[in-house]
Design a protein around this nucleic acid. Structure first.
Length: 948
RNA sequence: GCCCCCGUAGCCCAACCGGCAGAGGCAGUCGACUUAAAAUCGAUCGAGUGCGGGUUCGAGUCCCGUCGGGGGCACCA
């Protein structure tokens, strides 16, 4: 790029010189452990007392992909580094490191194709990744790096799994407790067994079944998401709205399988309520709230043919308007309710053309089962059939028809609804199509012309012999009806969640094995702690058996099941050596990232997953700084918004379990969350629609050309296939890492997405070259800084910049911090650029303030300015209040809101003086033409507005 | 369909509690250096804030409507 070096002055700050400086300082930092952050206790503690003022900054766990980084990846990493460096310079103890979320599919898939062990690929990718990020000069404490695939790491992942396995949720105390306490409660009769028999009368196996059903991790036979094309089951969170796997876009089928589940639903309320304590983007909080999906309402029971249909409703106040019911097609009561024959006078639209209800139900069910999730969503047209049965509305004894329809989902609430067409649009649509009765129970007002009315209004048509809701508002009516239902035994107030338990097992190879074995009764047994880690065995085949993606009848076959020597194991678990069978599932990739912040704190601790004292120091609540409700957690967590409901929900859940069990002092893992934006790029296609290399495309008159041919511009991701990838490596090579860092930070606010523009990078390079030139003579390499007395103007410029830059750094506004540095640099260049020397009093603060963004050049200049020690730990310039105010202020004078003139007055002039000066101004006087102004507004320090 | 965010010079972006629309960078133009060009340096040009209304002495900022872009949710009872 800058290959004109042979003509450039010998000591110009070129990419080549930058590269030499950068490598030199990177080596220096590594040799001196410059970024080592001391712990209060353990191997990473130091003899000197540690500052109580700390900062724990973390980037979201990267996956070490084999394809390497493009310039978008390090955006957040640089942002956290700048923030960390700024705080480190102000004297805080700053913990910043980076590890790898290294289990997962790509390495396994590569292994399956090539036969290379996933560990080999993973380790090579990590090395590659590290070499890329090291070139950027990130101030990581390298001693704290971890990878989820390290045996010493996943040993503790397994240990945490056991803590969760050995716990139950105590609803009364609203926290998790050790399972041993539950056992004691049963044994001592404090808690009743499910069937009421005394605990001692239960057999050993029965006792274990009871206990197992309370664990926070449990095995259940339930419908799960089975993806034959992936050969594994996946969690709800990993299925897209279209019913495809997030990874690979394979179809997902609901299938009853024996699977591990984590009882995240026990924490639904706390996960929801504690969001209020967090300093997170509102957008992410909203996504979590929606995902948890708490709705308050009531369960109501309807009698039908000797059976009871229970429904969940958020609008029990509309019960008098329930004119029919709908069950999900898969609802277990459907068979028992379906009548033998159509009742007299059944509407033809209700029968689906079938001769009997049973036939209608059978064919409708078949049709519904055939529809994929996608089909269901695409056609919003209501469909359904009548079961021939009637239910009794408990409030008025009315007989209402019972339908099955696929707009009611088995997976939510009770899988059955009371339909209130007047107050629910979906029910309205169904009712109008099938000719069902519509009774308004909320008065929509006279002018209302719409269909279903879901707004607020007084209840109408809602009374029976001993209850009247008429006239009540929605909230009061809900309370009244719930009280009535409870009194009569027809139902009760309740809360529903959209959140389901977390499907925790995967039938893959490259993940953490479960620390679980099964005995002859096929019941799971937790391995004692001293049996950890359970290491992944070598297997001949790394991939699970996969199937035709649409083969819903296939069954998962995990790779570990084939390692028979490993699966069949003889262990002494206290009652002599016995044969056991290992669990052949592995944990989902999310497991390792649920707790890595805790291991960063104490990476070498062999006794515990984290020492409590270290955890308290780095993550404990600090009410003095963050308010009385501070839940604790690390101080700044930066990453993309795509983890809003997966990682961030799971991680909070695990943290809360550890908190309940007393292992950590913080109630939340991430006190402050920040979503960085994405760097995107233009891509270009030729007339055939084939991508052409973006770097060779030229722009002329708003059109784009590649090799003389016009091409079409697209905007989006960076990717190899789009031929528009720009790597940090080439940026460092062509401009230097500091220039690259500065450019990324000055492109815009950290949380904005924006397009990459390589041609703009030169602006950052020129800035650093100018700054370099102020300190170093380009021709001789001599330092051209001297102790020159500053002018008042110099001081004002300097201190204004110091004050502004400090604030910008603290608020993550790196783009404006950069602009202020350029501004000051331009001022110094203009004032002293062609003078003999640059005043030291300007050069030094400039270098120090630059250091968080461009640490290498700053270190180099700082050293050349005669400082033997690194500037990584400060000092950072402090503004002098005295120089923050100007002596005089120029006030624009508006007449009726338009600027007409200006006056300059002393900065400490009172409002009356400013007013007088403004009115005395010749142009203003002329405009007023002798008339008395109606009003004069003086905004101190800003402007004067004269209203005539 | 519902909810949220964003629209400021050719481009990326500033503008604090409503107070002079511009801090910074790119591109453009002019000049210096050069035989010339690149690089570098210096200077300079540039929008009334997507559009329409309202509140206000004063609106990029607040309110209503509308258009465009991005994101989330989507038969959740």
């Amino acid at each position: 790029m800058t290959d004109g070096t042979e003509q450039a002055p010998a000591h110009r700050y070129t990419a080549e010189l930058a590269g030499r400086i950068e490598r030199r300082w990177q080596d220096y930092w590594a040799d001196h452990g410059t970024y080592h952050a001391p712990n209060p206790k353990g191997p990473l503690a130091e003899d000197t007392p540690i500052p109580s003022d700390k900062l724990f900054v973390q980037d979201m766990f990267p996956y070490p992909s084999g394809s390497g980084l493009h310039v978008g990846h390090p955006l957040g990493f640089i942002g956290t580094d700048v923030f960390a460096r700024y705080h480190r310079m102000t004297g805080r103890n700053v913990l910043h490191t980076m590890g790898f979320d290294a289990f997962g599919l790509p390495a396994e898939q590569y292994a399956a194709q090539t036969g290379t062990h996933p560990r080999t690929t993973t380790e090579a990718n990590i090395e590659r990744y590290l070499s890329q990020i090291r070139r950027l000069g990130l101030g990581h404490d390298e001693r704290r790096r971890i990878a989820t695939t390290d045996v010493e790491y996943y040993r503790w992942t397994q240990w945490i799994f056991l803590q969760i396995f050995n716990s139950f949720y105590d609803e009364k105390q609203d926290r998790a407790r050790p399972i041993a306490e539950l056992e004691r409660e049963f044994a001592e009769g404090e808690r009743e067994t499910p069937d009421g028999r005394p605990w001692a009368e239960l057999s050993g196996v029965e006792q274990r079944r009871v206990i197992d059903s309370h664990r926070l991790v449990y095995i259940s036979e339930a419908p799960v998401n089975w993806a034959p094309g992936l050969g594994t089951v996946v969690a709800n969170e990993e299925v897209t709205a279209e019913g495809l796997t997030e990874r690979g876009n394979f179809p997902v089928f609901r299938k009853n399988l024996r699977q591990w589940m984590m009882r995240i639903t026990a924490y639904a309320d706390r996960l929801l309520d504690d969001l209020d304590l967090l300093d997170w983007p509102e957008k992410v909080k909203t996504m979590q709230r929606n995902w948890i999906g708490r709705s308050r309402g009531a369960n109501v029971r309807f009698r039908a043919d000797g059976e009871t249909i229970e429904v969940f409703t958020t609008r029990p106040d509309t019960l008098f308007g329930a004119t029919y019911m709908v069950l999900a097609p898969e609802h277990p009561l459907v068979d028992r309710l379906t009548a033998a024959e159509w009742p007299e006078g059944t509407d033809e639209r209700w029968t689906g053309g079938a001769a009997t209800p049973a036939e209608a139900v059978k064919s409708y069910r078949a049709e519904a089962a055939r529809k994929s999730e996608l089909d269901r969503q695409e056609s919003r047209d209501k469909s359904g059939v009548f079961t021939g049965a009637f239910a009794t509305n408990p409030v008025n004894g009315e007989q209402i028809p019972v339908f099955i329809a696929d707009y009611v989902l088995m997976g939510y609430g009770t899988g059955a609804i009371m339909a209130v067409p007047a107050q629910d649009q979906r029910d309205w649509d169904f009712a109008t199509k099938f000719g069902l009765r519509i009774v308004r129970t909320v008065d929509p007002g006279e002018d209302f012309e719409g269909a279903a009315f879901t707004g607020e209004g007084p209840a109408i048509n809602s009374s029976n012999e001993d209850l009247s809701l008429n006239g009540m508002g929605v909230e009061d009516a809900k309370k009244a009806i719930i009280a009535w239902l409870e009194e009569k035994g027809h139902g009760e107030g309740t809360v529903q969640y959209k959140l389901r338990d977390w499907l925790f097992a995967r039938q893959r190879y490259w993940g953490e094995p479960f620390p679980i074995v099964y005995d002859e009764n096929d019941l799971p047994i937790a391995l004692p702690e001293e049996h950890l880690p359970v290491e992944l065995p070598d297997v001949p085949e790394y991939a699970p058996t996969t199937f035709d993606p649409d083969d819903a009848d296939s069954e998962p076959q995990p790779p570990l099941a084939k390692a028979t020597d490993w699966v069949e194991v003889t262990l002494d678990l206290g009652d002599g050596p016995k044969k056991y069978r290992r669990d052949t599932n592995v944990m989902p990739q999310w497991a390792g990232s649920c707790w890595y912040q805790l291991r960063y704190i104490d990476p070498d601790n062999a006794e515990r997953f984290v020492d409590p004292e270290n955890e308290r120091y780095w993550m404990g609540p600090r009410p003095a700084e963050h308010g009385v409700n501070d839940p604790g957690g690390l101080d700044l967590y930066v990453g993309g918004v795509e983890h809003a409901v997966l990682h961030l929900l799971y991680s909070r859940f695990w943290h809360k379990v550890l908190y309940d069990l007393g292992h950590v002092s913080s109630a939340e893992p991430y006190r402050r969350l920040y979503n960085q934006g994405y760097i995107q790029a233009f891509a270009y296609t030729d007339s055939r629609g084939v991508y052409v290399p973006a770097e060779d495309v030229e722009e002329r008159d708003g059109k784009y050309f590649y090799q003389g041919e016009e091409v079409t511009q697209e905007y989006g991701k960076m990717g190899k296939s789009l031929k528009n990838v720009v790597t940090p490596d080439e940026m460092s090579e062509n401009y230097g890492a500091d220039t690259f860092r500065f450019y990324e930070m000055s492109m815009g606010p950290l949380d904005d997405s924006r397009p990459w523009a390589t041609k703009d990078v030169v602006g950052s390079q020129r800035f650093l070259q100018r700054l370099w030139r102020l300190v170093v003579d380009e021709a001789t390499g001599a330092v051209r800084v001297a102790d020159i007395e500053l002018t008042d103007d110099d001081r004002r410029q300097l201190h204004k910049t110091v004050a502004g830059v400090r604030e910008d750094y603290a608020e993550l506004r790196f783009n404006t911090a950069g602009a202020k540095l350029i501004e000051l640099n331009n001022y110094v260049t203009k004032t002293y650029g062609s003078a003999e020397a640059t005043p030291r009093e300007l050069a030094e603060p400039l270098v120090l303030m630059l250091a968080p963004m461009c640490p290498h050049i700053a270190e180099e200049l700082w050293q050349r300015l005669g400082h033997p020690d690194s500037l990584v730990h400060g000092p950072f310039p402090v503004p002098d209040e005295k120089w923050l105010v100007d002596e005089t202020v120029e006030y624009p004078i508006q007449v009726n809101g338009k600027v007409r003139s200006r006056v300059t007055v002393a900065a400490d002039a009172g409002q009356d003086d400013v007013r007088a000066a403004a009115l005395a101004d010749a142009k203003i006087a002329a405009l007023l033409d002798g008339a008395e102004p109606r009003k004069v507004i003086v905004v101190p320090g800003r402007l004067v507005n004269v209203v005539r």
